[in-house]
Simulated assay, not measured.
Amino acid sequence: MTTNPQQTHEPNEPANDKPATLYRMVMDKHTCPYGIKSKDLLEREGFVVEDIHLVTHEETEAFRAEHHVKTTPQTWIDGERIGGYDDLRAFFGRSVKAEDETTYRPVIAIFSVAAAMALATSWFAFGELVTLRVLEWFIAISMCFLAVQKLQDVESFSTMFLNYDLLAQRWVPYGYIYPYAEAVAGVLMISGSLVWISSPIALFIGGIGVISIIKAVYIEKRELKCACVGGSSNVPLGFVSLTESVMMVVMGTWMALKTMIA
């Protein structure tokens, strides 16, 4: 098999006691991103990389057949095959995410950015970071972000939603309507207008969500994934999911009371 070695060091550079050989796909119309990551990781770990490019599909298939591997890139260190990018991370003692591993990272990211945006908006509008509107904007912006996650693939969301939502289980179209309703309520709450529309929506979908999650998680003790950040979510159904629904109920109630008092 013909290879195209692309070494990362000059020919006259002194030999390094930490050499590694990396085979990765580098074609005219495709460069494997995991190959780039593998090369970067090796170099950050102090290795001098013999970077060998597989420049055609035929060459790649021949390499896989010769070494009995299914994927590229592949790394060798001290003559021992380490494997692909995830194998390389594990070799260096770095975390490797399991395929079905649950995580709260998407929700934490959404809530963190929403909080930052709410504070920034308050600073711009009032010249102060902490105002009453910060909490309102935080919840409303979070609702919009969460709605966008669902709207990326409504079909997938509605399928996961059916695992626990009581209304969707009885009336399937509700699973398709929910993301749009959440988005409309969130946008209107940011503006503070048409409360007679946004408040009932938030109270309705939030209230059903609270009851559904309490029943599934805390009464039936089921271990499910939450559709709150979309149908491909690995967020476990539980306290964080309940928080989303509770926030909508609180926001819907507050906006209604605020309007009546005014």
Rank of each mutant, 00 (worst) to 15 (best):
V249R: 04
V217A: 10
D153S: 02
I82Y: 02
D87M: 11
H68W: 06
T259E: 07
L119Q: 05
T102V: 10
A147D: 06
V154L: 14
N16P: 02
E99Q: 12
M25H: 00
N12M: 06
P19D: 14
E10T: 15
Q152Y: 12
T243L: 11
I139Y: 02
D86A: 10
Q169I: 02
A185I: 02
D17A: 05
M117E: 03
A114M: 07
S158M: 03
Y104N: 12
H30E: 00
K39A: 13
A256H: 09
D51Y: 13
I261G: 00
I110V: 15
L242R: 04
Y176E: 07
A65C: 14
A227Y: 11
W196P: 03
A116H: 00
W137C: 06
F126Q: 09
S112W: 01
F138E: 07
M260I: 00
I139K: 07
V107M: 15
M189N: 11
F161S: 02
E223G: 04
E99V: 13
L257K: 00
T72G: 06
S193M: 13
H9T: 14
F92L: 14
A181Q: 05
E128V: 14
T243D: 00
M117C: 08
P236T: 06
F157I: 10
S38W: 09
L242F: 01
M160C: 04
A202Y: 03
Y85W: 10
R222N: 15
G231V: 14
D87G: 03
V172K: 11
G207V: 14
T60H: 04
E66A: 15
F63G: 07
V55D: 14
T159Q: 06
F239V: 13
E155D: 06
G175K: 03
Y174L: 02
H9Q: 06
G192S: 01
F138P: 01
G231E: 05
S158V: 07
R64C: 08
S191W: 10
F239L: 07
A256I: 00
I211N: 05
V210D: 12
C228L: 07
V26L: 05
P19E: 01
R81D: 10
W76Y: 04
L162I: 15
M27T: 07
I77A: 11
R94T: 04
E244Y: 11
I108M: 03
A115C: 08
P11Q: 01
S191F: 07
I190R: 01
C228S: 11
F204N: 04
L129C: 05
C226Y: 13
I219R: 10
M27F: 04
G93W: 05
I214S: 06
G192I: 04
S191G: 13
V172F: 09
R44W: 10
L166I: 15
M143V: 12
S112G: 01
M189T: 13
G230S: 09
E58K: 13
S232A: 14
L129H: 02
Y180D: 03
K97I: 12
L151Q: 05
E50I: 15
V26E: 15
G207R: 09
K70Q: 09
A115W: 11
E136R: 11
V113K: 00
I139Q: 01
